[in-house]
């Protein structure tokens, strides 16, 4: 996932379809983050389930997982 995507539009914000507003790569990124965080929550109970770690977790996840994916792909392709 990159930061390069169509310019944001007010028209799309108000009337866009689910597919237009939430690209597949973004859905995968958030679904994986949700799964990992929920598993951590089930294992640790309220250690991670608080309003500081929760929002920070998804911020860091969405920030660095695409970077790590890109590095991994580059390594696999031998660049």
């Amino acid at each position: 996932m990159t930061d390069i995507s169509p310019e944001p539009s007010l028209e799309r914000a108000k009337h866009g379809s689910f597919r237009e507003l939430f690209p597949v790569e973004e859905r995968k990124l958030y679904a994986s983050g949700t799964l990992v965080y929920c598993v951590l929550a089930l294992l640790t109970h309220d250690v991670v389930l608080n309003w500081i770690i929760g929002p920070l977790f998804i911020t860091v996840w969405a920030w660095y997982v695409p970077v790590l994916q890109q590095r991994w792909r580059r390594r696999r392709s031998g660049e």
Partner: peptide
């Protein structure tokens, strides 16, 4: 983030 946190919570 807070939607994500609320949903996971």
């Amino acid at each position: 983030g807070f939607f994500f946190y609320g949903f996971c919570r």
